[in-house]
Write a protein that binds this DNA or RNA. Structure first.
Lengths: 241, 241
DNA sequence: AACTTTACGTGCGTAATCGTACATCTGACT
DNA sequence: AGTCAGATGTACGATTACGCACGTAAAGTT
């Protein structure tokens, strides 16, 4: 019911904490498996847990009554789900589910709210992360409004690549079409374009990143702004450590 | 250098505070004029103030080196600028400027940070607002990915209408094209469609809302989700008052 | 091995929006 | 009243993506 050994922690937020804060927080965490399509947060249902991802990728999507859905956030070992709880909000219209299976360190809502109060450094860290999460959503809005499908797909693959250890990960065109808010055949065609350019290799339900620099070139300015801010505000800030 | 009389406050966040919290906060505010195109936050420059808008509308836009820009947030008397300061972040890549002139109650960065610490109710209120601001950005991402220009324009006009007192407000097609991330002639054409449907009336540099219900019909599900959450979490929550 | 499900490939007419160019109009300023 | 910059109106080919329909192919199931 609690995580003791420190060296097993792969979540980058938790690893930024001072030893005493980290110890207090680890005591409230337990490790859980995350399977593909597992739902971590139902829209408009009370949030029960915060998940600090260790491996794998989760997606936050917004949907409407008229069936439209689109991804507005992506979470890996650099972040956590359940941010509304940080904001004194019990539920959100957004849905969070597992895109690529993995593991997470889970904390109950009550424990999280308590630790946020008791550990200012933890609260500040989470708030900084929340800021960057907002930047990701904003960048997604920009991407959908201003970039082509090819650029957006390149961006998404880069973001996913940032969050998994390997160069290959399981993902279907169907899922990608929801993530990017386009129809499925469009994804297939665009994947072939990226594949033809030698940047990726696609198999059934899998995509492998072959030439990341070239992929970054294709994504252009649709990729990079929130990533740079994450490094500036979390990875590189010694004051947090 | 401070706001005394209570009945002059039109900002909806400030008016949700308990009397004692509000008094402490008003003491740190002063009233400023906001002219069209005034910049409240330069991208990547240190934030100096938080602005609680009384009248008028501000826009938050994200831009890239390759000159693309798009609105990712809109702020009126329901909200405030400078949210990164709430998140322990000194600057952001986003730019905030005045879209429709008005007035604001301004607080210095240091005063804001101090009051956030000293007044938990104030902090919780601001965090709830930050959550809803995030929903707005997410809804914008959805809109750009899934709705037509006509629907998105209708949505924007509704959001603007929510934030001004009158049915008419000054706005140019040029500005709208940046807000919506489309080219300017497209805005002109789409305005004519909305005008032809009898929902708005357009003059040089001005748009008047004539038939709001019909505009809501056109906007469809692109409009409404964050607005409903604002009502649930801020307007209707007596626990905050 | 037959069957079923899930995922991928492809084509094509249609719609939306872009990109660009240019004409016109309005209000402010001199 | 004349001038001018900013704002708006219009046109049109090019591009992108949609919407559907249908075919194929790979993995799991019995």
């Amino acid at each position: 019911m609690a995580i003791s050994s420190q060296h097993t922690i792969r979540n980058n937020l938790l690893s930024r904490l001072r030893a005493d804060d980290r110890a207090a927080i680890l005591a409230a965490l337990d490790r859980v498996e995350l399977k593909r399509k597992d739902v971590l947060a139902q829209p408009n249902e009370p949030l029960t847990h915060v998940h600090f991802l260790e491996t794998g990728v989760a997606s936050v999507v917004v949907g409407t009554r008229d069936r439209r859905r689109i991804e507005v956030g992506i979470i890996g070992s650099e972040g956590a789900t359940g941010l509304p709880l940080l904001f004194d909000v019990d539920s959100t219209p957004h849905e969070t589910f597992i895109q690529i299976e993995g593991e997470a360190l889970r904390m109950s809502k009550d424990a999280f709210i308590g630790l946020i109060e008791q550990r200012p450094a933890f609260r500040r860290l989470m708030m900084r992360y929340a800021h960057i999460f907002q930047l990701f959503t904003a960048q997604t809005a920009l991407s959908h409004g201003s970039y082509t499908l090819e650029e957006r797909l390149a961006r998404w693959l880069l973001m996913c690549h940032d969050r998994v250890e390997k160069d290959e990960f399981p993902i279907t065109h169907e899922f990608l079409s929801v993530m990017l808010g386009v129809h499925r055949p469009g994804v297939t065609t665009t994947i072939h374009i990226l594949e033809g350019a030698g940047t990726i290799r696609a198999r059934r339900s899998h995509i492998e990143i072959v030439d990341r620099p070239k992929l970054e070139l294709i994504a252009g300015d649709s990729y990079g702004i929130p990533e740079a801010e994450y490094r500036r505000l979390i990875t590189d800030d010694v004051a947090l450590g």
